[in-house]
Structure formats: C-alpha cells, structure tokens
C-alpha cells in the first residue's frame, strides 16, 4: 500500500530525512516514533505529496507521489499536526468543504458526514463552530474530515499532541477502531500512545531509521526484558541458585553473555535473569523442587521510551533523566564471585 524507497529530504545544508526505506502493507498500522525534529513530519509531508523528496521514490496505492500526485491525494486521509481547520466554519460546513474538494456529490457528502461524525462521536456537534470546540473535539473533527472521502490510507501526524489524558484515551480508542478498516500511519513523540495502537513501529532518529518492527521484535533485537527473583538466603546458596537458573536457559538466551546475575542482599539473594520470554512457570517448579523461599518473582519488560533511548543514543543507556524511568543497568549489579 505504501512503498518508500531511499527517500532523502534536504533543506539547504540540513538533511531532515536520509535514505529512508520502508513498506507498509494493506491493513497495517505503523507508528512513526522519534524525538522532536527526528524527521517524522517531514516524512509524512513527503508521503502526502505536500513536500517533494530531494531523492528517492514514494508510491501509495500503486501511484507515484510526484507524477500522480492528485491520485495519491485521493487515496489519502491526512491529519496534519495542529489540526489546521477553518475555525470560522461550522463542523458540517468544514465536512462539506472537504467533500467538495474531493469532488463528492451533495447527497454523498450528507451521508458520509453523518457517518463520520457518528464514528468520532460528534453527531450532536455538527452545527458547532470549529473554533469554539475543545482541542480534543477539534482533533476528532480533524479525523472526521480526513475520513470523509473513505481513504485507503490514513496519515495522522501527532493526533494526540496537546490533549489531556482523558481526551488522549478517547482519540487513541478511535484510532484503534479505525485501524480495523484502514492502513494507518501515525506519528508521535509520546511513545506509549503509539505502543497502544500501532502493531509495527518505525523509529527515526536524526532523519534516519534506527529500528523497524513489532515491539516484540524490537525487544528481541535489543534485549532488556528480565525476570527478577528474590530468595531467602536461608533457603538457597548463591552459586547453586545461579547454576540452576542458567540451566533453565535455552536458545538465544543461553548464548547471551551474562544472562544470569546473582548477588547477596542481607537476608536475601537477588537474581536477574535476562530472557526473551517470561519463564516464571519453570522457576516456580524449580523453586518448589529446591525448596527456595521466594519473596519476589517479577517480570520486567523495557518500555518503548527505554528502547528508544537506547537506539537514539546508540548505547546501553536509555537517555532518560529520571532514574526511576531508566532500564535496569546490569553493570550496576555486583555479581557474587564463585
């Protein structure tokens, strides 16, 4: 549905997007992630044909964005950042204008307006002035406008930006529903927002793609998920515990260097096991067999922020300021010497 081949966009000396390639298949929901200035909006503008790429090709629904721009625009529903609507118009007038821009008949505009307003939960607001609506409602009007001509592809640039938590939940739910019928590209710098709706993630940093895949694939690639185990010191020996935990590992987990860390902490022994899948059930059986007294058995997965921080900084550090947000750093753990 979307085929992007080696696109680059330069603004004078500044390279906003460099050598970006990706494909999106029909019905896929792809989240574009990146810090402010990463090139998300520039890429989206290139997808819509608003901004031509300096080099590279983009095809949407089989049409070239540059040579068949008007056809591409017909197959896209685009919500630009900041929801640029005409605030002096009523919601129904805004929808009618969009319909006329896309050459829709009057009866079709009326029917679709009712449908999309119902879809975004604003049926009772069709006579309201766009400028008088709350930001969350305006955002939903923007989505309704983008949906009016039944586009195959929906491109939403920062659709939850500036909304309060309740409004964000509403818009997020709406996007999740739309994902069932459309190919959706959504951008945000608020990573949990994307995590909630997009099946696949493309991470941009300084205009280049640093990762592409589902969250599970990114986790597998970058690691970081782990099991934490706290055992009463009286019920286990650290070395034996480490050996037993290592014995549970298989496949890629087994090959990973330093997969099991164990340390003594007063009356307890703490262990961290770096694995891709949660092995709690096996640990439970093992604990029962060995007679370990468990005071904690918890599974931890890194958040998208932590993964993104690592990718963006190109190191094991996640780039976040707050220690509570940071991914566990295994180097901080002093391993028990055998």
């Amino acid at each position: 549905m979307i085929d992007v081949q080696k696109i680059t966009r330069r603004f004078g000396a500044l390279t906003a997007v460099e050598d970006l390639t990706f494909q999106v298949t029909r019905g896929e929901v792809v989240g574009f992630l990146g810090l402010n200035g990463a090139g998300k909006s520039t890429t989206m503008r290139m997808l819509t044909g608003y901004l031509p790429a300096t080099s590279g090709n983009i095809k949407i629904a089989g049409h070239d964005v540059l040579t068949e721009s008007l056809k591409v625009r017909r197959s896209i529903g685009y919500l630009a950042e900041g929801v640029p609507l005409y605030r002096e118009h009523r919601v129904s007038e805004m929808l009618a204008f969009q319909g006329r821009l896309f050459g829709m008949k009057r009866s079709e505009i009326k029917r679709r307006s009712e449908e999309v307003l119902d879809r975004v939960g604003l049926s009772d607001r069709s006579r309201s002035l766009v400028g008088k609506l709350s930001k969350g409602m305006r955002q939903r009007v923007g989505i309704a406008v983008a949906l009016l001509h039944e586009p195959e592809v929906l491109i939403l640039d920062e659709p939850t930006s500036g909304l309060d938590p309740l409004q964000r939940v509403g818009v997020r739910k709406l996007i999740a529903e739309l994902a069932e019928e459309h190919t959706v590209m959504i951008s945000s710098h608020i990573l949990p927002e994307i995590e909630a709706v997009a099946g696949r993630l493309i991470l941009l940093h300084h205009g280049t793609k640093v990762a592409d895949g589902t969250k599970a694939e990114l986790l597998a690639k970058l690691g970081g998920s782990h099991l934490k185990l706290v055992v009463a010191a009286a019920s286990a020996k650290p070395n034996a515990l480490k050996e037993d935990l290592q014995g549970l590992l298989s496949g890629e987990d087994k090959k990973r260097e330093g997969a099991v860390f164990v340390r003594e902490a007063g009356e307890s022994i703490e262990a961290l096991v770096r694995v891709e899948k949660n092995p709690s059930a096996s640990i439970g059986l093992l604990a029962s067999a060995r007679g370990w007294i468990l005071s904690e058995l918890s599974w931890h997965e890194p958040s998208l922020e932590q993964l993104f921080g690592r990718l963006a900084t190109g190191s094991a550090e996640d780039g976040l300021d707050s220690p509570s947000e940071r991914a566990p750093d295994y180097r901080e753990i002093v391993e028990v010497k055998a």
Binding site: L70, K71, R73, Y78, A80
Partner: peptide, 11 residues
C-alpha cells in the same frame, strides 16, 4: 496556520 497544507494535500 497550516490550512494551506490542508488544501494542498487535497486533490
């Protein structure tokens, strides 16, 4: 205000 972007991404 971005309205021109809205117009020029329509056909």
């Amino acid at each position: 205000g971005g309205q021109l972007e809205f117009l020029l991404t329509a056909p």
